[in-house]
């Protein structure tokens, strides 16, 4: 056997296991969901194998039969999810960027410790951490007591079960996802480039706008996308911190599968999320291709 064919075979061998795994547990369920979204919901849950387009009609507007009616609430929830996910990405970026810059310029020993601290929340259960936020945000919680204590407010404010609480919670949960790709690209930035910019007459603000920001744009894009996708479909944070008031698309899908037992409609909603993510990924891919590879 020649070296070249050996290489090919060993490559195939190594790729078989992950490919099989992805095929069974990612691609197949996804195709199943896609098919389900075009089937008729069964009367007592499950599906009937008959083509049905009103699952999408209920969301997008053409369903007007007696049982299947268009309701704008689904689109409203979807748009709210997009907005909250985008807000989460924005706050994550605003918090992560200076932190990543600062940590990347630390001496190595301290830098590794700081990076460890960033990933530390992963070691504690998500549910525990979210209920800690309930304790902080509820009317008698730390935040309200603190605000009243220093005299900024006279009575407790509504934080819990608002958009604010959900964005705070999601920011808290997803910030390491934004931070790490951002850090990777900021750490690669050559300090000499910043000096060169000063040397050529640029102020700090000009240097940030013309050199630092563009050079770290791939990291910003990667961090934003990798945060936006799980934030858009998230249902744990809104169900703990948003309650019944702030429902996101993830909660709706969960409801359709577990409570309403309308799998085809749940699948159709899930496909809506998929479509949004796909559009986002295509845009990011285009942007990444335009960027210079250093």
């Amino acid at each position: 056997m020649s070296l070249r064919t050996r290489r090919t075979w060993s490559l195939l061998g190594l790729l078989t296991a992950p490919s099989a795994f992805l095929l069974c547990f990612f691609l197949c369920p996804l195709v199943l969901m896609l098919i389900y979204s075009f089937l008729t919901p069964g009367l007592y849950g499950g599906v009937e194998w008959e083509f049905f387009h009103l699952n999408y009609g209920r969301i997008l507007g053409w369903a007007d039969t007696k049982y299947e009616r268009f309701d704008p609430v689904f689109l409203i929830i979807f748009l709210r999810s997009l907005r909250l996910a985008a807000l989460t990405v924005l706050t994550c970026l605003v918090i992560s960027y200076p932190a990543a810059f600062w940590i990347s310029r630390m001496p190595p020993a301290r830098r590794n410790f700081a990076l460890f601290l960033v990933t530390l929340p992963f070691f504690v259960s998500l549910i525990v951490r979210l209920f800690a936020w309930v304790l902080i945000l509820r009317p008698t919680g730390f935040l309200n007591q603190g605000l009243m204590g220093v005299g900024l407010t006279s009575e407790p404010l509504e934080f819990l079960y608002t958009d604010f609480a959900v964005v705070v919670g999601m920011t808290y949960v997803f910030i390491p996802f934004t931070f790490l790709p951002l850090y990777a690209s900021i750490e690669k930035l050559d300090t000499a480039q910043i000096e060169a910019s000063f040397d050529l007459g640029a102020t700090r603000v000009q240097t940030f706008g013309k050199v630092i920001l563009p050079a770290t744009l791939p990291g910003i894009a990667a961090g934003a996308v990798i945060t936006f996708i799980p934030a858009l479909g998230n249902f744990i944070v809104p169900s703990v911190l948003g309650g019944a008031k702030v429902v996101m698309i993830g909660n709706l899908i969960e409801q359709q599968f577990l409570s309403a037992r309308n799998w085809p409609f749940g699948s159709a909603l899930a496909m809506l999320v998929m479509a949004a993510v796909l559009v986002l990924l295509i845009v990011q891919l285009r942007l990444a291709r335009r960027q210079d590879v250093p």
Partner: peptide
């Protein structure tokens, strides 16, 4: 103005 040892060109 300076010519840097690593050149420090703006790669983007």
């Amino acid at each position: 103005n300076t010519v840097f040892q690593s050149y420090a060109l703006f790669t983007h």
